[in-house]
Design a protein around this nucleic acid. Structure first.
Length: 947
RNA sequence: GCCCGGGUGGCGGAACGGCAGACGCGGUGGACUCAAAAUCCACUGUCCGAAAGGGCGUGUGGGUUCGAAUCCCACCCCGGGCACCA
């Protein structure tokens, strides 16, 4: 280990010297405010410093200050953004880079409960500890801009934004959010009809409030929600896993109706999908968001029934002639009216059964279709057929209208259901011959012979009535359009678009979150707390714990911790009509609230007039050109936030944009997902994890722990797998620069890879060799020769390296940038081995190229080279194009695609000359008998001779 | 089941359709040393060969091309997302 070696050389670059250099430079950067980025206006303004520099906003997904501290997997992204930010500073940009803390929410609260300390205290300790750990990495952050979501000065504005949303509605015609006051004006002056046809001015406050609630983008609604007794709170759809458990804590989650705060994110579904096209994001993340929103075009169709129309949504209106039955979700509100007396018992029993089944059970059971006939029939609007109406749990109340038309010939689920219950199956499309051939059956329109439904393009058959004929059509789009037109013309439905996305459940029944800036009056009408009374501070509360409910008790009731602070919960306010008593809303916001806008607060962290100054926002995030909606220039974080945070933040940003508070349509222009650092974990014979650090690799490649054989697997680094490696250990053994460099060198920035403490020594040696090439290890004196002239080969390699490294850093390819620097250094090592010092003309650009990656070491060398100032704003070296071209080029010569020899040719040789030289070569002659069939000369690349 | 990624030495990984394996780890040999560590130098895909050199090699099988890790088709395996979404 580095710290244990007894170095005879007192100035060798080792962990102790690195620690000394690193802490000195960290102190100096802090004292000199090196990384403070000037704003165009406000308290952080500095017009001179702004002049003629491009701005660059680099952002990391900010961390939860969790308290267990960092392991080496955490800072990977932060190091990457730091390297990029430092590089771009040297390229002349005004770089904004900072980091804040996402400190509200369940994890922080849960941790506080586990350790028995108040979340406020715990959170502050954790933030302090994380700041220390991150500072030790030498990240070039503007500390003035670091905010925590739990700061009152911060959540004051989170509450303000909430009120903006509460006091806004979505104008579908204008396709944007507008202030609710404008809607009231339109109702009052009659430009917009009041739903229900009432005279707005004649309505009382309560009635008005009720109508407005249907428009507000934040509203309280009785709806099926995900109740999680184990966490004592409801959670959002996005926070429920596929097997019906909570994302956090893995407790069972139950669907049940509750009155809850919702956000009307569905109003933005189209724009959230469409604007993805403007963003420079990984295609996979865009796809995940598109799928999550789940836009599908189709039609709404009304089926007449004895109790009125039953409306269904279908993506295949073109198959409507083949609808032979209908299926409603068991919870569908029309079921009670539809059911006939003789079927009442069966239907009631089925509904009971379906209701008792948790989501988990519904999914775990295999997919055998179940269902029961209601006894009622409905009318297929196209052919007038009476078709039976069933209920079945494969139809979900939460999607579409909770009812479907079943076309068993064209939908596999309907097909299975029809087979199960002997319902008719009628073909509306004739499958192509291959379809039958692949299934080894004779072509037939008799669906009884089909093994499954046919989904695809086929010729329409049996699809005509008096006024609509699809027969003979071959394209789905054409048939859909024709059907939709007919439905609309005949008043049976219309083309429509349906979304999988539901409104966002926005309240949590916990303590550690932003209180809602809402009070309730006696009539049950919510009122906004006036802006000048923000923040609504979270009251101190000793007993903040949620009441521990039985995690499996679906019927348990939420217990609101804020309700325990009675003197806080009940307030007297004057909202314009004299002082009155109100009851505060006792919910808190979900953790996502704070992370929906934090990047904006970095821009203007001390502003107490606005959440962000408009000019400041426009400078850092304004749109740039036609297809560039503005936003953060580079946003780096884990792929796990693909749909949650990234969707919610886009939604809030768009509302604020619509209301005129922002110039940018989108918060994050370019998104990059860094990979994860994984680590080997080891289990013993009892399947229990053992300390990975204590495992020994045996000569035969097997692994043992205390002599006992163990098995290896790879997983996320952390406590539970007992495989965490802390940055602190790496600082002690190698220093921060080595850790930074190793993390960047391990592999491409966007792929996950296993940590290997054994390999880190390679980068440590690299830094030692750099040091030795520039500094005398015995005296600590610089060995650089001021007037020495580098040979041609060295100058050429230097400039090729400059060119290469810049290109790699531009594209966040840190691993290959490092490889090029190692190559250069290996060459310099050979150079210095013979004669004396490295020429200054080589040493200086080399040190500058190293600076983004290993800033402490580079600063130290730069200073030894005689420069008084930090190199942070030194220009990154620029390659001399003249030195990038060689005088002569070595061409590999292939015969029939195999390299047989090499020839050296002047760089400016003509293809004919190269061909002649190649053919004249002795080795080539051995393989080529007589005249070659063909010769390919690729200038600058190679020669291939086809014999 | 559907939709995305990805399979290259002992390991992490490089390769605008143009010399496969850059760079690092590990390994082997050498120099220095009384010795060791550290450092420096050389070698290190695999098979045949004393060497020169040659054969084979990027998950599998086909194809396009003068030339394929790279492009196309089919399949296998691994990772991730979604999943009775009408």
């Amino acid at each position: 280990m580095a710290t244990e070696t007894t170095d005879a050389t007192p100035f060798r670059y080792n962990a102790d010297l690195a620690a000394d250099i690193e802490s000195r430079w960290q102190d100096r950067w802090e004292a000199e405010k090196t990384f403070e980025a000037p704003n165009p206006a406000g308290p952080l303004a500095d017009a001179d410093a702004l002049s003629d520099r491009n701005k660059l906003f680099v952002l990391d997904m900010f961390p939860y200050p969790s308290g267990v501290g960092l392991h080496v997997g955490h800072p990977l992204g932060y190091i990457g953004t730091d390297v990029y930010g430092r590089y771009r500073r040297m390229k002349g940009d005004n770089v904004l880079h900072s980091i804040g803390y996402d400190a509200f929410g369940l994890p922080a609260e849960q941790y506080a409960i586990d350790t028995g300390t108040h979340p406020r205290v715990r959170t502050e300790q954790n933030i302090a500890n994380m700041r220390r750990q991150l500072r030790r990495l030498g990240l070039a952050h503007d500390q003035r801009r670091s905010v925590a979501t739990t700061d009152e000065d911060y959540y004051r504005w989170t509450q303000w934004i909430f009120l903006q949303i509460f006091n806004a509605w979505y104008d579908a015609e204008a396709d944007k959010a507008r202030p609710i006051s404008e809607l009231e004006t339109e109702f009052a002056d009659g430009t917009r009809e009041v739903p229900g046809g009432a005279d707005w001015n004649a309505l009382d406050g309560e009635a008005k409030a009720e109508i407005l609630a249907d428009y507000r983008l934040a509203y309280v609604h009785e709806a099926p929600v995900n109740w999680c007794p184990g966490l004592g709170t409801v959670v959002a759809n996005e926070e429920v896993t596929a097997d019906g458990r909570s994302d956090r804590g893995n407790y069972p989650v139950f669907k049940r109706n509750m009155r809850q705060w919702m956000m009307r994110i569905t109003s933005y579904a189209d724009r959230l999908i469409d604007d993805l096209d403007l963003l420079d994001w990984p295609e996979s993340i865009k796809t995940m968001q598109r799928n999550w929103i789940g836009r599908s075009a189709g039609a709404r169709v009304d089926f007449a029934s004895p109790v009125g129309p039953i409306t269904v949504f279908t993506t295949r209106p073109d198959t409507l002639f083949g609808a032979t039955f209908m299926v409603l979700a068991p919870e569908h509100p029309l079921v009670d009216e539809l059911v006939t007396p003789d079927q009442a018992d069966a239907v009631a029993a089925y509904r009971r059964e379906a209701g008792a089944k948790s989501d988990v059970a519904r999914q775990v059971e295999d997919r055998d279709k179940t269902g029961v006939f209601t006894g009622a029939t409905a009318t297929n609007p196209l052919n007038g057929n009476q078709i039976p109406v069933w209920i079945a749990d494969y139809v979900l109340m939460g999607y579409g209208t909770g009812a479907i038309m079943a076309v068993p010939s064209g939908d596999q689920r309907d097909f299975e259901f029809a087979r199960q219950f002997g319902l008719p199956i009628v073909a509306t499309q004739e499958p192509p011959a291959e379809w039958f051939a692949e299934r080894d059956i004779d072509p037939s329109l008799d669906c009884d012979t089909w093994p499954e439904a046919f989904v695809g393009e086929g010729t329409y058959v049996q699809s005509s009535n008096d006024s609509l004929t699809l027969d003979g059509m071959t394209e789905i789009a054409e048939a859909k359009a024709a059907t939709n037109a007919w439905l609309e013309a005949n008043g049976h439905g219309e083309g429509t678009i349906n979304y999988r996305l539901r409104d966002w459940l926005f309240a949590r029944q916990r303590y550690w979150g932003e209180p809602f800036p809402i009070v309730w009056d006696d009539a049950g009408v919510p009122h906004a707390v006036p802006e000048d009374q923000l923040p609504v501070a979270l009251p101190p509360l000793e007993d903040f714990k949620p009441v521990a409910a039985d995690p499996n008790d679906a019927e348990s009731e939420p217990d609101l911790p804020l309700g325990r602070v009675t003197e806080w919960a009940n307030v007297t306010l004057d909202l314009g009509d004299g002082p009155k008593r109100y009851r505060r809303d006792l919910n808190v916001m979900p953790q996502w609230a704070g992370s929906c806008w934090y990047e904006l607060r970095y821009l203007d962290p001390t502003n107490d007039e606005r959440f962000v100054d408009r000019a400041v926002e426009e400078y850092w995030m304004g749109p740039e050109g036609e297809d560039h909606p503005g936003g953060v220039d580079l946003y780096v974080g884990g792929v796990e936030h693909a749909v949650l945070h990234l969707l919610y933040a886009r939604f809030w940003h768009k509302i604020l944009f619509d209301l005129g508070h922002l110039s940018s349509k989108e918060p994050y222009y370019r998104l990059f997902n860094q990979g994860y650092i994984q680590a080997a974990a080891y289990k013993d014979a009892r399947e229990i994890y053992v300390e990975a650090a204590e495992v020994v690799e045996e000569a035969d490649g097997s692994f043992t722990h205390n002599g006992e054989p163990v098995t290896r697997e790879f997983g996320k680094m952390g406590k539970s797998l007992k495989n965490a490696v802390t940055p602190d250990d790496m600082y002690d053994e190698y220093g921060a620069d080595t850790l930074r460099l190793y993390e960047m060198a391990m592999g491409p920035f966007d792929t996950s890879r296993p940590w290997s403490t054994r390999d880190i020594v390679g980068m440590y040696r690299f830094l030692q060799r750099i040091w030795r090439n520039l500094v005398d290890e015995d005296t600590g004196e610089l060995t650089v020769a001021d007037d020495a002239v580098a040979n041609d080969e060295t100058m050429r390699l230097l400039h090729v390296t400059i060119d290469g490294v810049a290109g790699e850093l531009d594209n966040l390819r840190f691993n290959t940038a490092i490889a090029k620097l190692v190559e250069l250094n290996n060459h310099l090592t050979k150079l210095t081995a013979g004669e004396g010092g490295l020429p200054r003309s080589v040493a200086e650009p080399f040190v500058l190229m190293l600076a983004p990656l290993v800033p402490h070491l580079a600063e130290e060398l730069w200073s030894k080279l005689g420069h008084a100032d930090s190199l942070t704003y030194e220009a990154f070296p620029v390659a001399d194009p003249a030195l990038l071209v060689e005088d002569s080029i070595e061409y590999p010569v292939q015969v029939n695609g195999k390299v047989r020899t090499r020839i050296t040719v002047p760089a400016d040789a003509a293809p004919d000359a190269i061909e002649a030289l190649a053919l004249a070569d002795e080795r080539v002659q051995e393989f080529v008998d007589g005249a070659p069939k063909k010769v390919i000369v690729v200038p600058g690349r190679l020669v291939n001779i086809v014999a």
